[in-house]
């Protein structure tokens, strides 16, 4: 097995471990992550509470484990959304060209002309603060990358003879797009999506930290960081453990994306 495959498998295992922790969270946590014991507030890490407790006396270890559910699920849902939306728009723009291409790409240009996070904050602010709305807000400003990428990939193969042959043999547009164009764009898009999981997770955590995403009493890492901010000096564990969780998961998914690119990139073979 080549080194790059070993790396990919290692990071894939780590990512699966994280996903497994999220799925099996109810069996892993020692306490109900939402059960408050007001008199046990701000207890430091101990054998009883591995990561300590928060301001409402909730077990932080349990909340960090449960937080993986919210953070992972929302990040994966977000990446799936922008992957699907961006790919469809990009492939359509590239294949049809003309005014459809012009309209779709100018729309994409408009979206990327704003600073992404600022626009996401504005959208989340208008829609109201919730995790779903945070996903929608980030999706609205992030799909353009996939659209532009898939469009350029389609333009590259648009003039190929096998596409002309397909048209000649009477293949319908939908069939050509799904059977010939999409498979050609998919590897690059998948690599982009894999590397995006980490950054999307960070953006969602950022929105939650600012109060535009997850709302109390949800266990979500960005929100937990925000809750811990006021206790930074007296109870630093309230920020340290959710922060570490974000750091570890983002690193693992970024490295997974990189190693996947190494595996799929044909230039590496040469």
């Amino acid at each position: 097995m080549k080194k790059k495959h070993v790396l990919f498998v290692s990071f894939l295992c780590l990512a699966l471990l994280i996903v497994l922790a999220a799925v099996l969270a109810p069996y892993l946590v020692p306490y109900d992550p939402f059960a408050a014991s007001l008199t046990d507030a701000l207890k430091p890490p101990s054998a009883e509470h591995l990561f300590g407790t928060d301001k409402l006396g909730r077990d932080l270890f349990s909340r960090v484990i449960y937080g993986s559910r919210a953070s992972l699920a929302s990040a994966l849902a977000l990446v799936a959304c922008i992957f699907a939306l961006g790919s469809v728009v990009g492939i359509a723009a590239g294949y049809f060209g003309g005014w459809i291409d012009a309209v779709l790409m100018r729309l994409a240009d408009m979206m990327i002309s704003f600073p992404g996070m600022v626009l996401a904050i504005a959208v989340a602010g208008i829609l109201g603060a919730s995790m779903t709305n945070a996903v929608i807000a980030v999706a609205l400003v992030s799909w353009t990358k996939y659209a532009r990428l898939s469009r350029s990939l389609v333009l590259k193969i648009k003039g190929c003879e096998y596409l002309a042959a397909a048209r000649l043999t009477g293949s319908r547009t939908g069939h050509i797009m799904w059977r010939y164009l999409f498979p050609n764009a998919v590897p690059t898009l998948v690599i982009t999506a894999a590397t995006d999981i980490g950054s999307m997770m960070l953006e969602l955590a950022g929105l939650s930290f600012l109060g535009f995403g997850a709302q109390a009493p949800m266990a979500e890492w960005g929100l937990m960081l925000s809750e811990g901010r006021s206790y930074m000096q007296k109870a630093p564990w309230m920020m340290v453990f959710p922060g570490l969780a974000i750091f570890c998961v983002v690193v693992v998914f970024n490295l997974l994306g990189d190693s996947l690119r190494d595996v799929l990139d044909p230039r590496e073979e040469e």
């Binding site: 059960a35 409402l56 909730r58 009493p217």
Partner: peptide, 8 residues
Amino acid sequence: EAIQVSLA
């Protein structure tokens, strides 16, 4: 927030 968890 504390009242929220108390009422839960």
